[in-house]
Amino acid sequence: MDDLIAAMASLTGSAAAPEVLGGDRGDVVVVRVGDVVAKALPADTDVVALRQRLETAGAHPELFVPPLGLHFVDDRPVTVWPYGTPVSQDDPDGAPWEESAALLAKLHALPVQGPVAGAPERIVRAIRALPPDLPHADVVLRAYEVLPSLDLNGRALIHGDWHLGQLVHTGSWRLIDVDDLGVGDPVWDLARPAALFAAGILPGDLWARFLGAYRETGGVALTTSEWDVLNIPAQAYVVQMAARALVSGLQAVEPLIEACRRIVTTHGTDHRG
């Protein structure tokens, strides 16, 4: 790992000491070196799709932090970016809910092109990584089993893994992390905050601010009553977040487990056979 970090740091052109960001993220390593960030992706990353995603980000600097380059270290693709100030975790009320909603609405209005977005596949990966013998894992796995099939219904360009951690300030708020950027149903970009709201974690006034700003900016995801289209993707993200919380040992997992129990009760039968 030290050799990888040193090689990533050398790509940034900075002499500052490297700092690993984000803790343990499995096959992904993010290193900050001064005002630059390098991100190493798994060796099996689809590089053709990654290049398309980087081109999209570079073409829309009003929405994305523009990439500085793509390199390879031991067959692993490494993307390089300007560093931006992340959203503070200490003041949820002061988080840029309206700004982020407007960015997503503008993203969803761009021409539909590029690879398939990665949203539902992230839920699948979280379930596969969940040891079945962990406490409450049976509840999470059962909630996943009773969900209807998840699909992207590609009709817009979407981020594919949006949450407030995918936003940084570099003069203005911009999106980061294009690893799942692509064609899909824009409702998936709203589904994680919807899941947090449904689980009782995100206060209703913050959810209303986010949703209102998305609609006011012309967002195309919600053509009917929001829960008609958000319900299943939001439930899927509840399952994903619960699985990840169990694996990482987060203390605040109980609201997500309770939400998974409600999903099982709501659907009743096994949709996955």
Rank of each mutant, 00 (worst) to 15 (best):
M1Y: 10
L4D: 13
I5W: 07
A7W: 07
M8N: 14
A9T: 08
L11T: 08
G13M: 10
A16N: 11
A16L: 04
G22M: 01
G23Y: 00
G23L: 01
R25S: 12
R25E: 10
D35N: 15
V37P: 00
A40Y: 02
D44L: 01
L50V: 04
Q52F: 03
R53L: 04
E55H: 15
G58P: 07
V65C: 03
L68M: 15
D75A: 15
D75F: 10
D75Y: 07
R76Y: 06
Y83A: 01
P92A: 05
A95H: 04
A95Q: 07
P96S: 03
E98V: 05
A101F: 08
A101N: 10
K106V: 11
H108P: 05
H108E: 07
L110D: 08
L110S: 13
L110F: 15
Q113W: 03
G114M: 02
V116F: 06
E121S: 11
R125W: 08
L130Y: 09
P131M: 03
V139R: 12
V140T: 05
R142S: 12
A143Y: 11
Y144M: 06
E145R: 15
E145N: 12
D151I: 03
D151C: 09
L157I: 13
I158G: 11
H159L: 08
D161I: 03
D161G: 02
H163L: 05
V168F: 02
L175E: 04
I176N: 00
I176H: 01
V178R: 08
D179C: 09
D179F: 02
D185W: 06
W188E: 02
L190T: 12
L196Y: 13
L196E: 11
A198C: 05
I201N: 02
P203R: 10
D205M: 07
E216A: 15
E216L: 13
T217P: 03
V220F: 07
A221M: 07
A221H: 06
T224W: 09
S225W: 15
E226V: 14
A234Q: 09
A236K: 07
A243D: 10
R244M: 13
A245H: 10
L246V: 03
G249F: 11
L250T: 09
L256W: 12
V264G: 08
V264Y: 07
T269V: 13
R272E: 10
R272V: 06
